[in-house]
């Protein structure tokens, strides 16, 4: 395995020695001895000096370790006694698990979520590259949709905080359909992703109901000192009982029954559209009748249309007409 564990072990040894309150603050010789015990050979002064330099570096290159050299006593110490380079002990299985997860995150690209997340993951990924980089395995194993940065993603961190701490937000919204600006106060509950686009779900004071807003249409959100309003009973309409985001007007949750040919049936059985999907019957040549319990949405209609003659809507009748138009 091409894992260079030595640097990692040295950092841990230095960290442990600096945090050991039962010994006096270590000098260079003490640190070399501590590292020597960890890696089974005696590292050079230059190696330890480089390690300390890297540990002091700000993330993502280093670990922001507050190591100070006391010129009077010629010893090293942490200026922040609560600092620890590594508070979690990881065994080999943990490390392998984290490596796989990091490969996935690395492939997805952290920037599509948020700046804060990207920065945090940058630290982890740089540590990963430092410790576990195997030059023979530079080929990307996982390929996912690469989403370029898009408008509104810079609000992600603020809206995430607003959701988690239940803080109302003043937002300016531009409607693509009405082609006009509006400003409202949202009491945000959930950030939702659908087809690589992010939305915020929450009670809108202007609409006096729970609404969903695309982040790409929001400008300049501002957190407000204001009592938070929850409209819990309507959240499922946006989060659980709908495929996609935009519901068809005046439609409630209902049974949607389709007939799909064998090819589409195979796809739908492999990748169900929604947890409520149920295959009612399989016909002789692999065709099937499938039902969903959903609030009809524009995304669902668009999806059914995209299958052309391979899917036929049986009920509701209005949707059948709409798709056949």
């Amino acid at each position: 395995m091409g894992i260079n564990r030595n640097a990692y072990l040295r950092y841990k040894a230095i960290d442990m020695r600096l945090r050991n309150r039962y010994c006096s603050a270590p000098d260079m010789e003490d640190l070399i001895a501590a590292c020597g015990l960890a890696i089974d050979y005696r590292p050079s002064i230059e190696t330890i000096q480089k390690d300390i330099k890297l540990m002091r570096e700000q993330p993502p290159k280093g670990f922001a370790a507050p190591i100070k050299f006391c010129r009077r006593k010629l010893v090293y110490e942490y200026t922040d006694p609560s600092y620890s380079f590594d508070t979690i002990g990881l065994n080999n299985e943990d490390i392998e698990g984290i490596k796989k997860a990091l490969e996935v995150i690395n492939s997805i690209g952290t920037s599509r979520v948020s700046q804060q997340f990207s920065h945090s993951m940058g630290k982890v990924l740089s540590a990963y590259n430092e410790e576990f980089n195997d030059p023979s395995k530079n080929r990307k194993i996982i390929q996912t949709d690469q989403i370029p940065l898009y408008r509104g993603m810079d609000h992600f961190d603020l809206l995430f905080r607003a959701c988690s701490e239940e803080i109302p937000v003043s937002v300016i919204h531009y409607s693509y359909t009405k082609m006009r600006f509006n400003v409202t106060v949202i009491h945000p509950r959930t950030l939702k992703e659908f087809e690589n686009r992010w939305y915020i779900v929450g009670f809108s004071e202007d609409h006096e109901s729970t609404r969903i807003f695309g982040l790409d249409r929001l400008y300049d959100p501002v957190l407000l000192k204001k009592a938070f309003i929850k409209e819990l009973e309507n959240e499922d309409l946006f989060l659980k009982d709908v495929y996609g985001v935009y519901q068809c007007e005046n439609q409630k949750k209902q049974t949607i029954r389709i007939q799909a040919n064998s090819m589409v049936t195979n796809y739908l059985m492999a990748y169900p559209l929604h947890p409520s999907q149920e295959v009612l019957k399989r016909l002789e040549y692999g065709n099937s009748e499938i039902t969903y319990q959903l609030i009809p949405s524009y995304e669902l209609i668009r999806l059914f249309r995209s299958y052309g003659k391979d899917i036929r809507v049986i009920e509701p009748q209005w949707m059948q007409k709409e798709i056949n138009q």
Binding site: S170, Y174, R180, F181, N182, V183, Y219
Partner: peptide
């Protein structure tokens, strides 16, 4: 343009406008 929002802060006043 429509005046969407006015924010008065200690160091500045911000006027947000939208134009179609």
């Amino acid at each position: 343009p429509s005046i969407l929002r006015i924010t008065v802060r200690e160091n500045e006043t911000q006027v947000d406008l939208g134009y179609s």
